[in-house]
């Protein structure tokens, strides 16, 4: 999972706009699902200027809006950008047109998962899965458990080993998870209603 090389892939060959592949309803759908009006965007790039994570992204935030406006569904859903975005809302605050760009990113992530799109940042997704697993099991996030399971999943035992050991030495990671007593109230949330 290396960071994408080119900061802007908009002009590369595999991003040619094939008219027949355009999804004319994408912009409308994203607008309704995210509750923000992306037609107001005039591509001033304030969002990208402010974004702390721009270096890890393949498209700057306004280019994601452009992809949506052009109806380029696959490119938008398979971008690194939507997974690198942590939802810090810096772009939403900077946007002179008051577009909640973070909400657009969240909506695209949701669609990507629901539609089974190719996920560009599998490590990040794996991490989220482990956090949710911990919550399902204990009702709370157990950091050591999350990190161990995550490392096993991505086979990177030695990355960050020093940080992990220092955190253990400082007792920043508890061996035993803090648990919710009424755990069945939590686990029930994870079972579809017709199975309960």
């Amino acid at each position: 999972m290396n960071p994408p090389k080119a900061a802007l892939k908009l002009w590369s060959a595999d991003n040619r706009i094939v008219l027949a592949e355009q999804d004319r309803f994408l912009a409308r759908d994203i607008q309704r699902l995210s509750g923000t009006n992306l037609n107001r965007c005039y591509h001033c790039r304030s969002c990208g200027n402010a974004c702390p994570f721009i270096r890890g992204m393949d498209y700057p935030p306004n280019a994601i809006i452009r992809l949506v406006q052009y109806g380029l569904r696959r490119q938008a859903l398979e971008s690194h950008t939507i997974w690198i975005c942590v939802g810090c809302h810096t772009c939403s605050v900077q946007c002179p047109m008051g577009i909640d760009i973070a909400a657009i990113m969240a909506t695209l992530r949701r669609l990507a998962l629901e539609e089974g799109a190719m996920i560009a940042e599998t490590n990040i997704l794996d991490f989220h899965r482990e956090v949710l697993h911990s919550i399902k099991q204990y009702g709370r996030a157990h950091k050591l458990g999350i990190m161990l399971r995550y490392k096993a999943r991505v086979h990177q035992w030695f990355a960050d080993l020093d940080v992990g050991l220092r955190m253990l030495a400082k007792r920043k990671m508890d061996l035993k998870a803090s648990r919710v007593q009424a755990i069945d109230e939590i686990t029930r949330l994870f079972i579809p209603h017709w199975k309960r």
């Binding site: 270096r55 810090c88 940042e121």
Partner: peptide, 20 residues
């Protein structure tokens, strides 16, 4: 004072968070 610290990317993409 309000720059994002990198949040959960610290776990999966430390290479993005460190310069930040």
């Amino acid at each position: 004072t309000h720059r994002c610290c990198g949040s959960f990317l610290s776990a999966a993409r430390a290479d993005v968070v460190t310069p930040l």
